[in-house]
Each structure stands twice: as C-alpha cells, then as structure tokens.
Simulated assay, not measured.
Amino acid sequence: MQEEIQKLIDRMLDPKEEDAYYFADKLGAMADEATKDHLIALVKGDHWESAFLACRALSKSTFAAEALEAIFEIIFDRKNKSHQGEFVQILEEFDLSNSFVDLFRVFLFGNFKASTLAKVYLDEVEFEITPRTIRKAEKHWNHYLHNPEDEGSLALKKVEVEPMLQEMRELFED
C-alpha cells in the first residue's frame, strides 16, 4: 500500500505529468494518517505548485477538515502573497461552512485575486454563524479600519462589509 501511495505522490509531483490532478485525487481517496502528514508538509513547503496539488489531494481525503487549518496558515503567510489566489481557489474543493472568519480575513487582507475569490465564497457558502463568529469578524474589521492598505480600498470594503456585519448582528438581536 505504501509503495502505491509513494508512486501516486511521485506522479502527482512530477512537473512533466499532465494528469497531476488525477493522481492528486486518487491519492486523496487512499490517504492514511502518514500520507496526510506528508501532504500537509508539502502544503507548508516552499514549492507552491506542489503545495497546491497537496491541497487538492487533501480535499479528496477524509482529512479535509483538518487540512483547512494548514491551508489558511499558508494563505496568510507573507511568503505566499503572490500565490494567495491559487490557494484560495483550491478552497472551493472543501467544506467552508465553519470558515467564515478565515475567509473574511482573506477578503480584507488578501491580494486582489484572493480577496475577490473570498468574497465569492462569503456570498455563496452557508456558514455556521454564532455571536462569537461575529465578534471575531468585527475584530478583524476594526483592525482593517485602522490599517487600510489604501483609502480607495477602505471605501469599497466599507460598502460591502458594514451591511454584512449588520445583517449578521440582526440574526441575534431577539
């Protein structure tokens, strides 16, 4: 079994392989605890294309929820700023219903592609919202208000974020 898993990893990571997604999906379906650990190490590694494929494999595994923490960690890592969008894009393969605050942070602080994709997820995914979720989102929003990247983006974000937060607060006003 381990030999077969290693062959899948090698095929997935081969830069000449045209069917890398196929091997990532197959690897994810077969992943055990050791494979999960290896894939998460790839996610946190220095080669973004290997990390992306490892994310894909993890999305097809029984460890997908556990892998989200590592993926958000690399999204927020400054060294990945130029590839944030790719990592946010792979999130479409995961259940994001418990990831509102992380996606909200990406929306606020991510590069253009990452922020745009995060906004799509915020609009389309049905999240588990609690008063604690709202408080955390408001904390990040206040941080953004006091540290905007530029005044133009601040005005645009206000138009989108303030009604969103107000709508969520109203859910718990009874």
Rank of each mutant, 00 (worst) to 15 (best):
H143V: 13
E126N: 07
A31F: 04
M164F: 02
D174K: 01
Q89K: 09
A41W: 03
D19E: 15
N142Q: 15
D10I: 04
S153V: 13
L27H: 00
Q89H: 07
E160S: 06
A51P: 01
A114L: 02
H83E: 10
L108Q: 06
F94D: 02
P163E: 05
M1K: 14
A20Q: 13
S115K: 03
H146K: 04
E18I: 12
Q6P: 09
S99N: 10
T35I: 04
N142W: 10
L68V: 09
F100Q: 06
V161C: 01
W141A: 07
A70I: 07
F87G: 10
A137I: 11
F76S: 08
F127I: 04
K158Y: 02
E73R: 01
R135T: 14
Y121I: 06
D174M: 00
D123P: 05
N147L: 04
S97N: 12
E33T: 11
S99I: 13
D123I: 07
A29K: 15
Y21H: 11
M168W: 15
A24I: 10
S97R: 13
E86N: 13
W141N: 08
A31H: 07
E17F: 06
D32S: 13
P15E: 09
V161M: 06
L68S: 11
L91N: 07
V161I: 01
K44W: 06
G28K: 09
A41Q: 05
S59N: 05
M30T: 07
Y144T: 11
S97G: 13
Q89A: 10
M1R: 13
L27Q: 02
L96G: 11
V101Q: 12
M164N: 06
A57S: 10
F76W: 00
I5D: 12
H83M: 12
L156H: 10
K119M: 10
A67Y: 07
R78P: 00
W48F: 01
Y121A: 09
K139R: 14
A34S: 14
E167V: 10
L117Y: 13
D77R: 08
I75H: 08
K139P: 04
D46C: 04
G28N: 09
K79D: 01
I134N: 04
L108A: 12
E160Q: 01
Y22Q: 13
E33F: 12
L117D: 02
Y22S: 08
A155M: 03
V161L: 03
F100V: 05
S61M: 00
L58E: 12
L53H: 08
E162R: 00
E86G: 08
E73F: 04
Q6I: 14
I134T: 00
A64D: 05
S99L: 06
V159Q: 13
R56Y: 08
L103Q: 09
F94T: 14
K119R: 09
